[in-house]
Design a protein around this nucleic acid. Structure first.
Lengths: 354, 354
DNA sequence: TTGTAAGCGTTATCAT
DNA sequence: ATGATAACGCTTACAA
């Protein structure tokens, strides 16, 4: 005959509360709370034992909702990811997790799945659940979406991209250097014509920087042909159309050049690279790699398998550093906003040889 | 001179509470609460307007902790993922998200990253935050880890694999049929020798089923050679050793068979397939595909690119169905535990032609 | 060493 | 139509 109603198997129907435990142990809630919070020094061994027993008997687990309501902190941080199908995100995540582990936080992952509305809702969720900070890989849109965060809101660190009008710490790739490195590699390998293929870049700072860097290098280069191709992966119809155009342009160049490969495609990130590779393979068959060179920023697992040259991002570090930034903010750091711009690493593979 | 302290820019230092709003609007908390919960019919347009204004002025956002504490439900469900680097997981996740969206839940993603300890901590977190249910892609170990969940605990649905001793709904692939289908395909294509390559399978039900199914089909087949190779991706040293052994065995078979490809490798899942493909490519170069056939359960994005035959899992459906199951449980469904076993789809590509 | 009581920010009950 | 007031499960002064 215990204090809480139990199922035949002993599992409590209604979860036990701290009061239940107190009653079961024949003491007050305060002592239970003390026990829970490790204030062991202030409890007689005898009482401690009774409490321990009562907790076990009732299978008691403190309600974090109630706890969080009372005290301010919960050691939770939110990680809002724009697109989990992008391997970049998962890799960054692993850095985030490692750092959280080291610093005593639990990361909660929220996936916006490229939907602004989802981004908004998750941000709302995270702030109203009072997580101590958020790491945001934003969709890029400003909107009022990001208002609850950063300036005046809960501490936030941006990853990969900034958001117009939002001042916050940010960690990401040195986009300019990465693109310069890649482009120079291609030029050095004798590719006289390079097309930079990128998703719509107006609203995403990292894409914007990459595209600008590409144009900058190319404009400094005598006699090299260049072009920016915008690939909208989100819109199937537009995508198909763009690819068709690309094919025509490709035919023109490839035809005139004969068998000598002199055209290279530079994908601004992994999703673009994958799209291009699939398309080229569908069009030219297994030998597609002998027709046109392809390189990319981002180094997904299949890049090695397909022998694609890539600029690898320091994804793990990016995630790790982001948490460190956040940690400093959470510990009351009111310092000026900082950026952490990390270098990429060029990995040369067969796709850019001649 | 508002009721809450404000920063020079108007953003509240301390987040406004419902009482603040009530005071600001010159009314009681009850009305605010009513407004928040859409009980509009019972509010005079005049008061409604005042409340609306006050909320905007104070930038008020209801505290979900407090809300969740009061009412029982929070419309949150947890999705505990064993390994996010496995594309399978991300695909299932998308089904989960779609279903959650449709049913009015918010999915919270927790990543165990193949660590039992993490799995334990996240499960703890989710239950103590009183999420309404969890979808668990478990690591497989029983341990006391999963106690707070399922029988007597919070509603749970297992994905891909069962856990010894834990009775709960489960959604996953028809492993037996999938393996049979794949194996028959290989046999039909004239591969007289097939090696099934799988991660340590004792403790993971889906791997166990796949391996058993493979041996069953092969034992029923006259004159076919077969073998199970265990690849421990988690242990670099062991892995290296296993791959070396594999190479020797490969040499033996490939040598004797001359140029006719008759050996096929059947990977039990995508991570294994990737490991094999990388290794084979490293060893045999670009022509590796002409030496040995490879197929796999799971159809990651690079499979098409590399022309690998695969049995595609209905990942989206799996995730979707899991949430539906969970939903029924949350709505008080005390029915018997159910399984949902979905069929895979064989996708034939060049890797298994002759 | 132990317990009482007052909140934390909501919602639910019951008056008005 | 509107508003006190008592919970929800916990922590934390403040007493004892």
């Amino acid at each position: 005959m215990t204090a809480t109603p139990s199922s035949p198997h002993g599992a409590p129907l209604r979860r036990a509360t701290i009061s239940d435990v107190a009653r079961e142990a024949g003491t007050g809630k305060t002592s239970i709370s003390r026990y829970l919070n490790g204030e062991l020094s202030v409890l007689s061994p005898e009482l401690r034992a009774r409490i321990e027993a009562a907790i076990k008997r009732l299978d008691y687990q403190p309600n974090q909702m109630a706890r969080g309501l009372k005290r301010g902190r919960n050691r939770l941080i939110g990680m809002l990811v724009a697109d989990l199908t992008n391997p970049y995100s998962v890799e960054v995540l692993q850095g985030v997790e490692a750092a959280c582990h080291a610093l005593g936080y639990m990361p909660l992952i929220c996936h916006a799945a490229n939907e602004v509305e989802m981004e908004r809702r998750y941000l709302q969720l995270l702030t109203t659940y009072r997580v101590e900070g958020v790491i945001v890989n934003a969709l890029g849109v400003r909107e009022e979406t990001l208002r609850p965060v950063g300036e005046g809101g809960i501490p936030a660190v941006l990853v990969d991209r900034t958001v117009d009008g939002l001042v916050a710490d940010m960690v990401g790739l040195d986009n300019t250097a990465a693109v310069e490195q890649g482009t120079r590699h291609l030029l050095g390998r004798g590719f006289g014509e390079i097309w930079f293929v990128v998703q719509p870049f107006e609203r995403v700072s990292s894409r914007r920087l990459r595209e600008a860097a590409f144009r900058a290098v190319m404009s400094r280069t005598e006699g090299a042909q260049s072009r920016t191709v915008v690939l909208d992966l989100a819109d199937a119809a537009v995508l198909e159309h763009t690819l068709a155009e690309l094919d025509q342009a490709l035919d023109a160049v490839l035809g005139e050049a004969g068998s000598t490969r002199r055209l290279a495609l530079f994908a601004a990130n992994a999703p673009v690279a994958l799209c291009l590779a699939r398309h080229l393979k569908a069009r030219y068959g297994d030998g597609w790699q002998t027709r046109v060179a392809l390189m990319s920023i981002d180094d997904p697992e299949w890049a090695e398998l397909s022998g694609i040259t890539a600029v690898r991002q320091p994804t793990f570090q990016i995630g790790y550093r982001a948490v460190e930034f956040l940690h400093e903010r959470i510990d009351g750091g009111e310092a000026a906003v900082r950026d952490c711009i990390l270098p990429g690493e060029l990995i040369v593979r067969a796709s850019t040889s001649r």
